[in-house]
């Protein structure tokens, strides 16, 4: 059941005309619920692209594996930095792995 919105963290991106997750979701799935928090209108239609999870400024969205194809609980959390993402993965046995991945060239890389 892909994006899980953590209600204690989501503020609905108050300053934006639409929450950022709603702005980017390629499936038009994220929207603002009546409580002023983001919701995924149809979990079944998510592609797990993690665009919403990466763009959320509050870290309020977790991508989850549908239980039908993976056990509970496992986590994969991206932290967006400048020109890199730090991914933290925790498997069902509590084993933690960390990955730091460059995702953009820096100015000086370009020449």
């Amino acid at each position: 059941m892909p994006p899980k919105v953590l209600l204690n963290k989501c503020d609905g991106c108050k300053a934006e005309h639409e929450p950022l997750c709603e702005q980017v979701c390629p499936g038009n799935l994220m929207t603002l619920g009546s409580e002023g928090k983001a919701i995924c209108r149809d979990l079944r239609d998510c592609w797990d692209c993690m665009s919403c999870t990466k763009v959320c400024p509050q870290g309020a969205i977790e991508t989850r594996m549908p239980y039908q194809i993976g056990y509970h609980p496992a986590k994969l959390i991206p932290m967006m930095g400048t020109n890199r993402i730090t991914w933290t993965c925790v498997d069902i046995n509590g084993k933690v792995e960390r990955f730091i991945v460059k995702n953009r060239n820096e100015e000086e890389d370009e020449d």
Partner: peptide
């Protein structure tokens, strides 16, 4: 294996989550 997982994080990140969810 570390590099392979990093490759997946660049393309279909939730595959790494899938492996974790299956331990």
């Amino acid at each position: 294996i570390k590099e392979l997982k990093t490759d997946y994080l660049n393309e279909r990140p939730s595959f790494v989550l899938f492996l974790a969810a299956n331990g």
